[in-house]
């Protein structure tokens, strides 16, 4: 029998490692679409689809729509508008980033083992990938200069936190009004970041965050 949860988690981990190594922004956005889709599938696979009422299925569809299509779509628009194809001269190089990603993965396996939480079967791997995704998102935000890569880092961080939420908490707490609120915040957040990004690009002729250094004490 094929364990679909583990396959999905492998996809998430691969997308994390690949995004740390890729310099092309379009590739990064595609990886985010893959990751967003995989992340929204995990709770569905963990719970099992046969017990789900209609309303919940509908919610997961909306979630996949937002995380896998709308947000990456917005990012594609942003990348096309700012007309930058790749990240040049990151603070931390790509090879070093992959090594850092692997170290993060090892540390999260260790941390998950150390916590000794009595999690249900299969949730341990979710926790490992959640911590890895979160930490890698942080890493991406700090290691890259372009504003758009920082937005992608933020999305990864948010994906990781969502995974922790699904791995750790009991699904009986889930209120779909609240979950939808979280999702809406994320969507509007990315839209606003995209608008500011576009304005940074037209004001400074580049979407490089190192140019933002006018306000100081």
């Amino acid at each position: 029998m094929i364990n679909y949860t583990e396959i999905t988690i492998v996809f998430i981990l691969l997308s994390v490692l690949l995004s740390l190594s890729s310099s092309r922004l379009m590739t990064l956005v595609k990886l985010m679409a893959l990751q967003g889709g995989a992340v929204s599938l995990v709770p569905l696979l963990l719970e099992g689809t046969q017990h789900l009422p209609m309303g919940e299925l509908l919610f997961f569809q909306v979630m996949i729509l937002i995380k896998c299509i709308i947000i990456p779509g917005l990012l594609v628009l942003a990348v096309k508008r700012v007309r930058i194809k790749r990240e040049i001269e990151p603070f931390i190089g790509y090879h070093a980033s992959i090594v850092a990603g692997l170290v993060i993965l090892l540390v999260s396996v260790f941390v998950t083992g150390y916590l000794k939480l009595s999690l249900p079967e299969g949730h341990n791997f979710v926790l490992v990938s959640a911590i890895t995704t979160m930490a890698a998102g942080f890493f991406l935000m700090m290691a890259r200069r372009k504003a758009i890569t920082q937005v992608i880092g933020y999305l990864m961080l948010e994906n990781g936190i969502y995974l922790i939420g699904t791995a750790l908490t009991n699904p009986s707490h889930t209120l779909y009004v609240v979950e939808f609120g979280v999702l809406l915040d994320l969507l509007v957040g990315v839209m606003i970041m995209g608008i500011i990004l576009h304005n940074i690009n037209s004001a400074f002729d580049d979407a490089d965050t190192t140019l933002l250094g006018r306000l100081k004490d």
Partner: peptide
């Protein structure tokens, strides 16, 4: 522009950590 960018990024990341805190509370 710079102030807005810092505001949105720093606060969003900060508040994302608060969400993690809320999940731990649930746990």
């Amino acid at each position: 522009l710079e102030a807005t960018w810092k505001y949105v990024i720093i606060c969003s990341v900060g508040i994302a950590l608060a969400l993690l805190g809320c999940f731990f509370m649930t746990l």
